[in-house]
């Protein structure tokens, strides 16, 4: 199959399913709370409704506030295009170099942070300060974790990491700590438990929500879509590292295209159920307790790296 087609299919599938993933995780969490829960399609309706609503822009904000939703969504879309989520070897796959991916995510975080600060309220600044802290301190863990994957696979592009065949990365069991570390990073980067509570109504405790508190209408829709896409991207990435099966490649025929959405949906669904279980089983961490979290994920990544290097020597 054409690499350009692969990338296109991937972006379309990921963006289409991203709201569904958010819907599923909410529904599963509701189930675990003994409730019926919101319709799984609700996020779509929310986004559509927001697109039709008027926008209220604060008089304190500048062009940065108006530019941020585009950049934030663009970085989310870009990460959805380059990483091996639905397909491997797409036209954008060479850009899935770990440093580039980290850079793209950071760029999105930066604009989110800028937008939060631009609203001139205390909450936006609060969310921004926390988000920046989380992003900055998770950076070493992210790099080390990806580096140990690179060591395991011999490739520094994430696409290449999944291309090693066999049982994938897990054929080198020493990547398991790094996988756990990536899980922690994913939770932090996506403003999920135990770093942030996506469902909180308490302004003072928010991270992600506080930064988008001032957005309304279509801009809010872009921001929400961006965070949904980012969540789906991380979820699919984690699932694919554990189970690289079912990825489209340039070798697969056009028929497999039809199965791709199904496979993706199953993978996303599994990840979301897991996420819901994790989130339902713990309290949010104390914000000033986060260094242990950062250090923990860095330590896990370093463990993998050390084990991998050691294994290489033997």
């Amino acid at each position: 199959m054409n690499p350009a087609l692969l990338t296109t299919v991937q972006v379309v599938v990921v963006v289409t399913f991203a709201p569904l993933a958010t819907g599923v995780v909410r529904r599963v969490k509701a189930f675990l709370q003994g409730r019926h829960g919101p319709p799984v399609l609700l996020p779509y309706w929310t986004l559509l409704t927001l697109m039709r609503k008027e926008m209220v822009l604060s008089t304190s904000t500048s062009w940065v506030f108006r530019a941020a939703p585009y950049v934030v969504l663009a970085t989310a879309l870009l990460s959805a295009a380059v990483l091996p989520l639905v397909a491997r070897g797409g036209i954008a796959a060479p850009l899935s170099h770990m440093v580039v991916v980290a850079g793209i995510w950071m760029l999105g975080a930066v604009f989110l942070v800028l937008a939060g600060l631009d609203s001139a309220g205390a909450f936006g600044g609060m969310g921004s300060s926390r988000e920046m802290t989380i992003s900055a301190f998770l950076e070493p863990a992210l790099i080390v974790t990806l580096a140990s994957f690179a060591l395991a696979s011999g490739s520094s592009t994430v696409d290449g990491m999944l291309a090693i065949g066999g049982r994938g990365l897990l054929s080198r069991p020493w990547v398991l700590p790094a996988l756990a570390s990536l899980g922690l990073i994913a939770l932090g980067e996506n403003a999920r438990y135990p770093v942030d509570n996506p469902a909180t109504h308490l302004e003072l405790t928010m991270v992600h929500e506080a930064m988008v508190l001032e957005y309304s209408g279509p801009y809010l829709a872009l921001m929400e879509l961006a965070s949904m896409v980012k969540l789906a991207v991380f979820a699919l990435l984690l699932v694919n590292i554990v189970l690289p099966a079912g990825l489209l490649t340039t070798a697969t025929g056009i028929v497999a295209l039809a199965a791709a959405p199904l496979v993706t949906a199953v993978k996303l669904g599994a990840a979301m159920v897991l996420l819901a279980l994790v989130e339902s089983s713990m309290a949010k961490l104390r914000f000033y307790g986060l260094p242990e979290y950062f250090f923990g994920s860095l330590f896990l990544g370093l463990t993998s790296l050390a084990l991998g290097l050691f294994a290489g020597w033997l």
Binding site: K29, Q33, G34, R35, T200, L202, T205, A283
Partner: peptide, 17 residues
């Protein structure tokens, strides 16, 4: 406190029930 305040949803959901 244990549920909403800390985000430990199982406490909130069952408590309020």
């Amino acid at each position: 406190i244990c549920g909403m305040g800390t985000g430990f949803t199982v406490m909130a959901a069952n408590g309020f029930r």
